[in-house]
Write a protein that binds this DNA or RNA. Sequence first.
RNA 1: GUGAUUGUAGCUCAGCUGGUUAGAGCGCCAGGUUGUGGCCCUGGAGGUCGGGGGUUCGAGUCCCCUCAUUCACCCCA
Length: 426
Amino acid sequence: MPQYQAVKGARDIFPEEAARWKHVEGVVHALAALYGFNEIRTPVFEYTELFQRGIGSTTDIVGKEMFSFQPDPNGRSITLRPEMTAGVMRAALQKNILGTAPVQKLYYISELFRKERPQAGRQRQFSQFGAELLGVSSPAAVAEVITFMMQVFDSLGLRGLRLRINSLGGTHDRLRYREALQAYFSPYRQKLDTPSLERLEKNPLRILDSKNPDLQEIVSGAPKLYDYLDTEALDDFDKVLFYLSERGIAFDIDHRLVRGLDYYCYTAFEVTGTELGAQDAVGGGGRYDGLARELGSSSDIPAAGFAVGMERLLMTMEKQGLFTALKLQAPLVYVVLQQQEYTDVAMQVTFRLRKSGIRTEADLAGRSMKSQMREANRLRCSFALFIGENEVATGQYTLKNLVTSEQSTLPLDRLIEILHEPASGE
RNA sequence: GUGAUUGUAGCUCAGCUGGUUAGAGCGCCAGGUUGUGGCCCUGGAGGUCGGGGGUUCGAGUCCCCUCAUUCACCCCA
C-alpha cells in the first residue's frame, strides 16, 4: 500500500476514462443547447442553513450525510454541497434572474459530496448533470425536463432504462394523505422497524419506500396517494403522461414512488437501470414549487428539474459496451532522432509540425532509437519522422508510414503538406 | 453508523496440512539489429507478502488488534 491514497469515497480519473467523461459531457452540452438550457456553475460550498431549509431537516442527506465545517471560530457553518438544486435556486434568487426573464432554463455538470459508506455506484465525491426549469409550473415544463433527460440517455446509446413516475399532488393533497397514512400505520407500531417509526412522525410518505421485506405486506395495504389527489393534480399528471406518450417515451406509473427530498410536489420520477447493483437509480427529479418560498422568496417560483448520476451513467454505459470504440487520440507523427546531438533539430522540427497543426510527439528523455520507435508504436502514431546524420546534412527528412512501412525523404515543407492530406489522417 | 468480504510485483493472480534465496502471465526496461517499431528470442529491474503485536526452532501461511478495499443494509445520483 502506498503511503498516500485518495480519500475514502473519492477517486482518480485517468486519461482513458477521462475520454469517456468528455464524450458524455459533450452529449450533455450539445443536447442542453438543443433544448435551450444554459449552463450554470455555483460554488461547491454554501452556508449550511441553505441545505437544511432547502432539502429538509428530516432527510438523511441533511441529517447525517453532509460534510460541514466552521472555517472561522465564531463564523457560520459551511457545507460541501450534497445536491445542486438548493444552490441553483439560491443563485437565481440572489441575482433575481427571474426579474429579467420570467422563465429560466439552467443545467449543470457538477461535483457533489455526501458522507456515506462507499459501495458500488456510490461515492463520497460524485457528480451529477441536471437541469432546473424555473418560473413555469406546467405539465409541459415537467415533460420538457424529462424529455431532455431521456434524450441524453438515448443519444448515448443506453438501453433498458426504466422510467418510473408518480404524482405527489399539491400541498393540500399531501397533508390529507399524510394524516391518512399516520392513521393507517399507527395500529402497526409494534411491527414497524425503527426507521419507519421515526418516519411515521416526521415524514410518513417515506415508509412506502421501505425495502424491508417484513413490512411489504403492511405497506401494500396502505392507502394510495393516488386516491387523495384532487382533480387539479390528476389533470396535471394525466397531461404529463400524455406528453410523454406522444413523444414515445415509455414509463411505468408507480404510486409508491416518493423520493427522499422534501421539496418535491406533483410529478416525481426516477430512472433505474439493471446493471448497477443495489444502487440502481441513475437519475430522478420532479417538480418543486415550494422550494423558492422555503428559501425566503416573497413570490412563488414554480420549478421542475432532474439530476443524473454521472458515475452511474458511465457505469451503465460501460456494462452495455458503449465505450469500446472510444480511444485516446493518437499523435500523427513521432519524431525519432538517431543520436542525442540532434535533439535541438528535433525540437525545432517538432515545433514546426505542431505550429502547422499536426499532432506531434517526440522523445524528451534521450532514449534509444528502438525505444523511440516502440513508443511511436505504443502511442499508435501513423508516422515516424527520422532525424539523423543525412537529414541534418541535407535538410531533407525521412518520413515513414508506420502502417505500410513505406518511407520517403523530402524537405520538411513538403512533408508537412503530405501530412496535411486527408489520407494521412489529419 | 451496522454487517460481510478481500488485502502477495505496475496489473491479473499462484503459493499444498507453517519449513531452504516468494513465483507465473501481462506490462515496463535493455539487448539480439551501433539509422527503423509491431512478431519472436534472451536478459534485467521491480515485492517492508497492507501495518503492528503474538504463538512457534521457524509465519505470506495460525491468533489478536489496526488500517484499507469491495459488496450489502440504511438512503440516495
